[in-house]
Simulated scan of single mutants.
Amino acid sequence: MNDDRPAPAEIFSHYRKLLREEPWLEVAMCWTVVVPHDHRPFSVADIGFRVSGGTRHEVHEAAPLEALPYDDGVHPMAVEPAGSAVMLFENNGFLGSLPEVLRRLSRDGRVCSVYWNVEGDNRLSYAADGRVLVGLDAMFWDEWAGADFAVLEPELRAMTELLSGDEDDWQAAAMTVVELVTGVRLTGEWLSGAHPYLTFQWPVAVEAAGPGTGA
Rank of each mutant, 00 (worst) to 15 (best):
R107C: 09
D38K: 06
A147L: 12
L191E: 07
H14K: 03
V206P: 06
G130V: 06
A128Y: 05
E207D: 15
L133P: 05
E189K: 10
G188R: 10
A172Y: 04
V111K: 04
L68D: 00
A128R: 12
A172M: 04
R103M: 10
L198Q: 04
R5P: 07
E61Q: 15
V59E: 11
R104I: 01
V184N: 06
G48N: 05
D72E: 14
W141D: 15
E155T: 07
H195A: 09
L95E: 05
Q171M: 12
W116Y: 14
L98F: 08
P6T: 00
Q201V: 15
P154C: 06
L163W: 05
L133Y: 00
T182H: 03
G193N: 09
G212A: 08
M175N: 10
T187N: 05
V114R: 03
E179H: 08
G96P: 02
N92T: 15
N2L: 11
A7Y: 11
L25V: 13
V181K: 01
E66S: 04
W116E: 09
N92I: 14
L98E: 12
H195E: 03
T182Y: 02
A62Q: 10
A127D: 09
G96T: 01
A85E: 07
G48Q: 03
D71S: 03
T199I: 00
E143N: 12
Y15K: 04
S164Y: 02
P69Y: 00
W190A: 12
A138P: 08
I11H: 06
T182V: 00
E155Q: 14
H75E: 11
P69C: 01
P81E: 06
P64H: 04
F49I: 10
G135R: 15
V178Q: 08
A85K: 06
L65M: 08
T199N: 01
A172L: 04
S106R: 02
H14Q: 06
S43W: 07
V134G: 05
E155W: 03
D168Y: 04
V35T: 14
L136K: 00
A194P: 06
A45I: 06
V114W: 06
L19P: 04
L136R: 01
S106Q: 03
W190V: 13
P23C: 02
L88T: 10
G109K: 02
P211F: 13
R50K: 10
H37G: 13
M1T: 12
E153H: 11
V86S: 13
P99N: 10
R104S: 09
D137W: 02
L136Y: 00
D4G: 08
L19S: 07
T199C: 01
C30L: 07
G214V: 03
K17N: 15
T187K: 04
V177H: 07
A7G: 13
A150I: 09
T55I: 02
A205E: 10
F49P: 09
V79A: 10
S113G: 07
G214F: 03
H57E: 03
A174Q: 05
I47L: 12
